[in-house]
Design a protein around this nucleic acid. Structure first.
Length: 568
DNA sequence: GCCGTTTTCGGCCCGACTGTTTTCAGTCG
C-alpha cells in the first residue's frame, strides 16, 4: 500500500530535520503526519481523488502537497531536501540507546562519524569522550548501547511478554510488598508485541527500597536507571522492564499516563491545556490544585471525556469518538459465552472431552464446540469420519455429565490442495459445527482455496485466516485477504479471531476491516489444554483494539442463537 | 508544519533520570 511508503518518507523527513536541529514542532508535524497516513483505513489515493486529504487530522496544506507530489511523480521534494547532507547510515544509529539526534549531529560534525564503524572508532580512540558535555561514563554507556544494538532483538511477542510479566511479578513479590502492582504500557493495551514492560507499584513510602529490590531481581543483566520512584532494567536476552512506584491516591493518573499510547497521552494533555488544566502522572491539575487522580474514570471525567478502554488508546480516532459520545461499547471478557474451537486428546489436545467441557462450563461459557483435527492432519492424529462417530459417545456422555452448557460436536477440517474440505460429503451435514483451516500448502494458492472452501454451505468458519505466527511467520504466501473477507461476507462464513497469543489471527486491524465489511467474527481460544482456555483474554483485548462490539462477535450469543451457516 | 468554543498568528505535552555540570542539555517514554 502506498500509505506505508509515504509514512516511511515522512518519518525519514522528521528524523533528518531533527538531526539538523530544525524547529521541533515542524519535526513533530512530520511525525504526526507519518502516523496519520499509516493509520488511514483507506488508500491515500482515494482521499486525494476525493479531495479529502486535509480532512485528516495532522495533514495540512504542506503535507497534502507532499503526498500529491509523491503520487504524481514518485518523488518528494521535501524528503530530498531534508536528506541533503544526512548520511543514511548515520540515521540508522538512532536505534542505539542513549544516542539521540543532538549527539548524533555533534559526533557527525566534530568527529566525522557517518556510520557504526566510525562511531566505534571514536569510542575506542577516546576522541568522543573528550567532546564538551561528554565524558568517560557517557562513552562507556554508549559502548554498551552499541553492544546491545548489535544483538538487539525485535519487540517481544506478547506470548513471551506474558511469561516475563508473570515471572517478574512473582519474583518481586518475594522481596517487596507489591500487593496491587499492575502492568501498564502496550502490554495492558493488548498490543501483539511489546517493546518493554511497564510495572506500576502503588506504595506510600519506601520507593527507593522497592526500586532496589527490583534492580536486584535474578536474571537482571543491566540496570539502566535506579532512582527514588523509577527503576529500569534489562533482563537476559535484552528484555527491558521499567518499574514506577506511585502513591496509591494517584494510581488512576499513573495508570493513564503509563498505559499510553504516547500519542493518546499527548492528545489528553493538549485537551487539558485548552481547558486551563495540566495532566501528568500525578493527576489532573488546576493551578496548584489536584482535581483528579485516584481512578482513571476521574481523570478522563476531569477532561470531560468518558473512560476509554486501554486497548483503544492509540489516538486512532477514539478521542474524537469519546468527545462526540460515539465511543463504541467494545466487547468484554464477560460478554463471551462460547468457545467454538477446542481440541481434545482425540487429536492433538491434552485433555479429554469431559475435562474440556467441564473447564469451559466452569469458566461460565454456555456453548463449547469440540473441534478436533480432520484426518489429513496426520501429525495431529486427525479424526476420520469413523473416529468422529466414535467420539460422539464421549460427547454425549459429557453433555449428560455437565448441565448448563451446550456442546457442539464439530471438527476443524483441513482445506485441501484443491480447495475442498477434508471430510466426506455425506458427513458434512452431520456435524454441528465445521471450521476450515489451511494447515499445509502455505504457498499454494491459499486465497483461491479458502474462497472455494467458503462456498461450501457446511463450512461455518475459517480458522486463523492469515496463518501468521507473531514474530515467526508472516502468514500464507501471497494471500489476498480482501478477497477472503469479501467472500466471507457474501457467504455468511465467519472469520476467526484466534486468541492464542502467538497467533492473534485475525489481527486487530484485519478484524476491524472484516467487521466493517459485514463479516461475523468468531473469537476462539483454539485450546489444546484446559489452561489454554485462559487465552480468551488476549483475544478479547485484540477484539477491543479492533473496536468490536458484542454484535460483531458470534460468541457473545446465547446457545439458541449460534447456528450453522446453512440454518441462518 | 498544523491548527483555532480564546486565535489566521503564535502557540505547539510533561517529567524522571543521567552525566555533565554549578544550572542544564540530552534522552526516553
Amino acid at each position: 500500500m502506498v500509505n506505508q511508503e509515504i509514512s516511511t518518507l515522512f518519518e525519514a523527513v522528521a528524523d533528518a530535520l531533527e538531526f539538523k536541529g530544525e524547529n521541533r514542532f515542524r519535526v513533530n508535524a512530520y511525525r504526526r503526519g507519518a502516523r496519520a497516513v499509516a493509520d488511514l483505513a483507506e488508500d491515500v489515493t482515494v482521499l486525494v481523488a476525493e479531495k479529502r486529504l486535509t480532512d485528516v487530522p495532522g495533514i495540512g496544506k504542506g503535507l497534502a502537497g507532499d503526498i500529491d507530489e509523491y503520487l504524481s511523480r514518485g518523488k518528494m521534494t521535501a524528503h530530498e531536501k531534508a536528506m541533503e547532507g544526512v548520511p543514511r547510515t548515520l540515521m540508522e544509529l538512532r536505534a542505539i540507546g542513549g544516542l539521540g539526534p543532538r549527539r548524533l549531529a555533534l559526533f557527525h560534525e566534530k568527529l566525522g562519524v557517518t556510520d557504526l564503524a566510525s562511531l566505534e572508532r571514536a569510542l575506542a580512540d577516546g576522541t568522543l569522550a573528550a567532546l564538551p558535555g561528554l565524558g568517560d561514563r557517557m562513552a562507556g554507556n554508549l559502548r554498551e548501547g552499541v553492544a546491545l544494538y548489535l544483538r538487539s532483538r525485535e519487540r517481544m511477542p506478547v506470548a513471551e511478554a506474558v511469561a516475563l510479566a508473570r515471572g517478574v511479578l512473582a519474583a518481586l513479590g518475594e522481596k517487596a510488598d507489591v500487593g496491587k502492582a499492575a502492568f501498564a504500557g502496550s502490554f495492558r493495551r493488548g498490543r501483539e508485541t511489546c517493546g518493554d514492560l511497564d510495572l506500576l507499584v502503588p506504595a506510600r513510602r519506601n520507593g527507593a527500597a522497592i526500586v532496589e529490590a527490583f534492580t536486584a531481581l535474578p536474571g537482571v543483566e543491566r540496570v539502566l536507571a535506579a532512582g527514588e520512584t523509577k527503576g529500569s532494567v534489562l533482563f537476559e536476552g535484552g528484555r527491558q522492564v521499567d518499574l514506577r512506584v506511585v502513591a496509591p491516591e494517584c494510581l488512576g493518573a499513573a495508570l493513564c499516563y503509563f498505559t499510553g499510547s504516547k500519542e493518546h497521552n499527548v492528545r489528553l494533555r493538549e485537551i487539558a491545556k485548552k481547558r486551563g488544566l495540566k495532566v501528568n502522572e500525578y493527576g489532573v491539575w488546576k493551578g496548584e490544585k489536584r482535581v483528579a487522580a485516584r481512578t482513571e474514570e476521574e481523570v478522563y471525567a476531569a477532561l470531560e471525556l468518558p473512560w476509554i478502554p486501554p486497548e483503544m488508546r492509540e489516538n486512532r480516532g477514539e478521542i474524537e469518538a469519546a468527545r462526540e459520545g460515539r465511543l463504541p461499547e467494545v466487547v468484554g471478557t464477560r460478554d463471551i459465552r462460547a468457545d467454538l474451537h477446542v481440541h481434545t486428546a482425540w487429536s492433538d489436545g491434552k485433555a479429554s472431552v469431559l475435562e474440556m467441557v467441564k473447564a469451559a462450563a466452569a469458566r461460565g461459557l454456555k456453548t463449547v464446540a469440540i473441534t478436533d483435527h480432520s484426518a489429513a492432519a496426520t501429525y495431529a492424529h486427525g479424526l476420520t469420519y469413523a473416529r468422529w462417530k466414535e467420539q460422539k459417545k464421549e460427547i454425549d456422555a459429557a453433555r449428560k455429565a455437565v448441565p448448563g452448557i451446550r456442546v457442539l460436536h464439530g471438527m476443524e477440517v483441513d482445506i485441501t490442495a484443491d480447495g475442498g474440505i477434508d471430510l466426506p460429503i455425506e458427513a458434512q451435514g452431520k456435524l454441528d459445527w465445521i471450521i476450515a483451516s489451511v494447515h499445509s500448502g502455505f504457498r499454494n494458492r491459499v486465497t483461491e482455496r479458502m474462497v472455494k472452501a467458503m462456498e461450501n454451505p457446511y463450512v461455518d468458519a475459517v480458522a486463523h485466516p492469515t496463518g501468521r505466527l507473531i514474530g515467526k511467520r508472516v502468514g500464507y504466501e501471497g494471500q489476498d485477504l480482501e478477497a477472503v473477507i469479501e467472500k466471507a461476507a457474501a457467504t455468511g462464513t465467519c472469520l476467526e479471531l484466534n486468541a492464542a497469543p502467538e497467533r492473534l489471527d485475525l489481527s486487530a486491524e484485519n478484524a476491524r476491516r472484516a467487521a466493517e465489511k459485514g463479516v461475523t467474527i468468531t473469537l476462539n481460544t483454539d485450546s489444546h489444554t484446559v489452561a489454554m482456555l485462559e487465552n480468551l483474554e488476549w483475544g478479547v483485548k485484540t477484539a477491543r483494539r479492533a473496536w468490536l462490539t458484542r454484535a460483531a462477535i458470534l460468541n457473545t450469543r446465547p446457545p439458541t442463537r449460534i447456528k450453522r451457516k446453512r440454518d441462518r
